[in-house]
């Protein structure tokens, strides 16, 4: 995986509908969790520095059992913080990821063929680790680069 992941999709739908699914608790919880899980949005403070938190829990005893067998909790809460919110344009947040943060941002742009969505996932940002070359992520990247030179 490179330093940054970008996923682009085009939604054949009005921007209002797309935004509502991303930026309302009811909308987001309808698709956020994987099959077999329900998502309860606890807080969604749509402004920079606002809290975005949700609880994901196994929706059946079977799934809870499966998680337990895999040594994972059947319910967990994610506490993220919005880093940028521009209505119907940008939604960005950082969430705890190991000892550091995962940065996720999604932007929307209306075009003739629909809403163009760009999702960017950054495992670490250099400026957040005191300029220390991008945290643990840089070590993994360097390792991958080293492997590439050997093969």
């Amino acid at each position: 995986m490179s330093g940054r992941q970008v996923i682009e999709r085009v939604w054949d739908a009005p921007l209002d509908v797309v935004w509502e699914l991303w930026a309302t608790p009811k909308g987001l919880s309808s698709w956020w969790g994987p099959n077999g899980f329900t998502v309860e949005v606890l807080t969604m403070e749509l402004h920079e520095g606002g809290t975005f938190s949700y609880t994901m829990r196994a929706s059946s005893p079977e799934m809870a059992e499966k998680m337990k067998a895999g040594g994972r909790p059947s319910e967990f809460t994610v506490n993220a913080t919005y880093t940028d919110v521009q209505p119907k344009t940008t939604l960005a947040y950082k969430s705890p990821f190991g000892p550091e943060f995962m940065f996720t941002s999604v932007t929307f742009e209306e075009a003739a063929d629909g809403v163009h969505m760009t999702l960017v996932i950054d495992a670490t940002k250099p400026e957040m680790t005191g300029g220390a070359a991008g945290g643990w992520r840089s070590a993994v990247d360097k390792f991958a680069a080293h492997l590439a030179t050997m093969s």
Partner: peptide, 21 residues
Amino acid sequence: RYRALWEERLDRFETVLKQAQ
């Protein structure tokens, strides 16, 4: 795998979006 998880999540988004429309 993290990327793959997002791809799956966006597939669900697409399904829900179609239903909403």
